[in-house]
Design a protein around this nucleic acid. Structure first.
Lengths: 229, 229
DNA sequence: CCCCCTGGTATACGACGTATATCTACTATA
DNA sequence: TATAGTAGATATACGTCGTATACCAGGGGG
């Protein structure tokens, strides 16, 4: 067995027909890690599996990333980058409520789209440039809406906190392995009559998210004297 | 070396003076695990370290717990159990706002008190009997406040989600190791002028939490026609 | 030409969760 | 009191993990 093209790392050929491996870059490593996370979960992503997937040696990564935590940082950054809102267009055509609603919904969509990355995102301070940049542009777009800069930031942070907490409760992957299933919990419910009555209509995450989101915006509205135009 | 009293597990003597180890129970194991988590963080809690702390063998736990995930479940349960609110008294003397405010503040206090357990709590569905029981009693205490059972549950869940998200952003321990420090992030801030202006007043978690909490309650208030008495 | 530097590889170490088998000491029964 | 059964503690071992260390290939500049 030669050492040339091993594993299932994408291989192309140059103009002489000789096989050429895709260059190993931070970007490429992180993208593959995100794919593995989405497919196999946090426990399914090890440096060794990632290396096998890329047809290389686990130690090769350490020329591009200092350690596994940095890989996680990159994955978080990549996931956040999927929040793609045209802030400037929204700022022209919509109200501050539209803007914050779109922000919260987009964040929820992205988090739900990467449930296995959620635990990593949730427990990491939002220092990723993509989220900082988004927040900065959102704040810029919200200027002139009658709120102070501080209150605007508090709103954005509050919506982020609620959204993360909400999606965590909905689809989060428990740290440290699986927990009792929902059926087992339902079995407990008859010991809690008030709870049982309240959930009898079923769990509707989407509706509840929207309901609370609008309530929060209603509450924020009172932070500013009403404005026209 | 005898095998009798090893490690630093608490050892007492019975009435004949013979050394007697404290009985290994699920409760005792979980309590010790919580203490280790608080002291050393998630990465600092291994079955082997826990065994050393208790002066026993790692495999001894498996007669009381099926695996490490169950240990985490127990720790979450123990942490939630620290939320000690006299719901019935509150229901007699306070409004629904008082009740929900107390619930959110107590939850925040407990989460902040166990920052290293937060990642475990946050990513685990709240099926623990202690939190189910608390929610059930809260719902019972809130009956007759003019809200439907469903809306009451939505409120409680929303406050839990926001509080968890808020404390995660404040003190959470990142899954998978440390992240860039706050100073490094502050260095990035001058690339984001709107953000920089908004945070110029400093980060005041307590004040922001209270501000958003009251805004959420303001929003909830509109779900019900106003009541007197 | 050779040297160095970037980046891939090989090997190894200590720690992890836990399967399996064995042992110890107590309880119940006779 | 003797004995069988059992619950719980222990010893050992396996496979996996992140990553430190050492080595190596190959290409560009003197």
């Amino acid at each position: 067995m030669s050492r040339q093209p091993a594993g299932n790392r994408p291989v192309s050929t140059d103009d002489t027909g000789r096989p050429v491996r895709l260059a190993l870059t931070r970007e490429y490593i992180v993208r593959t890690a995100l794919a593995i996370l989405d497919r196999d979960g946090v426990a399914g992503l090890s440096m060794r599996k990632l290396a096998a997937e890329l047809g290389t040696n686990p130690m090769a990564f350490y020329h591009h990333l200092p350690n596994k935590a940095a890989l996680f940082d990159g994955v978080v950054e990549a996931a956040y980058a999927e929040i793609d809102i045209d802030i400037e267009a929204l700022a022209r055509t919509g109200t501050w409520r539209d803007m914050l609603t779109t922000f919260a919904r987009s964040l929820r969509d992205v988090l739900r789209h990467h449930p296995h990355v959620l635990a990593i995102i949730a427990t990491r301070p939002a220092y990723a440039p993509s989220i900082l940049g988004l927040a900065d542009r959102a704040l810029g777009g919200l200027r002139g809406s009658g709120f102070t800069d501080r209150d605007l930031l508090v709103m954005v942070n509050a919506l982020r906190a609620f959204t993360i907490g909400h999606v965590l409760a909905e689809v989060g992957e428990p740290v440290g392995g699986p927990t009792p299933t929902e059926e087992e919990a339902v079995g407990l419910l008859d010991r809690y009559p008030n709870l049982a009555r309240a959930v009898s209509g079923g769990y509707q995450p989407q509706e509840q998210f929207e309901q609370v989101l609008q309530a929060m915006l209603d509450g924020f509205e009172q932070w500013s004297p009403p404005r026209t135009g």
